[in-house]
Nucleic acid binder design. Structure first.
Length: 284
DNA sequence: CGAATTTGACCCCA
DNA sequence: TGGGGTCAAATTCG
């Protein structure tokens, strides 16, 4: 659709048509994500690491999650908590930091997964016999998200950044009145876009002419997402697409993490290694 | 130069 | 036997 949109920019009707198609496909994707989250076995709602910015429960294929086909468990290995969560990396929100210091001790390519799984243990494992570990893996279907599995409880008292848990409001459904927010002036927005927007296609796999498979959006510092977006595509001769679509930021996404970007984080190095995904940023 | 990460080897078990 | 988790030497980082 993006490709079609590209060749139809001259025609306002066709342009609007394809924009609507793109937006509706996003809505469908978001809806599917929500269905996926609510389906499946009930996972423990209690979250031991409350400072994580997000909390949709998704299975890792860990034993006990009961939803993944590939489920192998070593006999003597510790039991992974059922609670496995997806969370995005929100650069403005301070990244993947969950309040503990982790030290990476391994990385493995996992069969059937596009991205490797990273293994972390508590930095104070030796100093304080803290045997908490976690696994971090990028999702195949939404590379802007991570799935994190925690194992063991922290016995150390060196929790790194005692960042308070995020306010729930931040991740709630956007009230409709936000749709009434007046958009920024076109000139201002344009200059901001030129200054800040970036699209990295340098490491795209395969056909770089195909439409991007994923976008990431940073959230605003205020945590509010306005429904006014200006998207600049890299090969559109800098022609600016103004998309005003309340439905685009559908309330379906209580996971505002859909709109995220890679940020500085514990896993940034890992991310940089596998930075083959289309990256798209936008101001709000 | 110590700490953290990378990465291939190793181990265990289904 | 091979996948996944861990180890540890080599390398990089700060």
């Amino acid at each position: 659709m993006a490709e079609l949109l590209k060749v139809s920019l001259h025609s306002p009707e066709a342009r609007d048509f394809y924009i609507q198609k793109i937006l509706s496909s996003y809505e469908n994707a978001l809806f599917a994500l929500q269905l996926g989250d609510s389906a499946g076995p009930p996972l423990t709602p209690a979250l031991p690491a409350p400072s994580l910015p997000e909390s949709s429960s998704i299975s890792f294929g860990r034993p006990g999650s009961g939803e993944n086909v590939i489920s192998k468990k070593r006999k003597g290995s510790p039991t992974w908590e059922d609670e496995v969560r997806t969370f995005n990396d929100n650069g403005l929100d301070g990244n993947n930091d969950d309040g503990y210091n982790w030290r990476k001790y391994g990385q493995k390519d996992i069969q059937g997964a596009k991205f490797p799984r990273s293994y972390y243990r508590c930095s104070y494992r030796n100093a304080q016999n803290c045997f908490a570990t976690k696994q971090v893996q990028r999702r195949d279907d939404d590379p802007t998200k991570f799935e994190i599995a925690y194992n063991g409880k922290h016995t150390c008292n060196h929790s790194a950044s005692p960042s308070p848990p995020p306010s729930p409001e931040k991740y709630e459904i956007m009230p409709t009145h936000h749709q009434k927010l007046s958009p920024p002036s076109p000139r201002e927005t344009l200059s901001n876009l030129r200054a800040n927007l970036s699209v990295n296609t340098s490491n795209l796999d395969g056909d770089s002419n195909t439409a991007p498979s994923s976008f990431s959006f940073p959230s605003t510092s205020s945590g509010l997402m306005e429904d006014y977006h200006q998207l600049q595509f890299p090969n559109f001769d800098n022609e600016l697409l103004q998309v005003y679509s309340p439905s685009f930021i559908s309330p379906v996404t209580s996971e505002s993490n859909i709109f995220s970007e890679w940020g500085s984080s514990q896993s940034l190095n890992f991310l940089a290694d596998v930075d083959t995904d289309f990256e798209f940023s936008s101001l709000f």
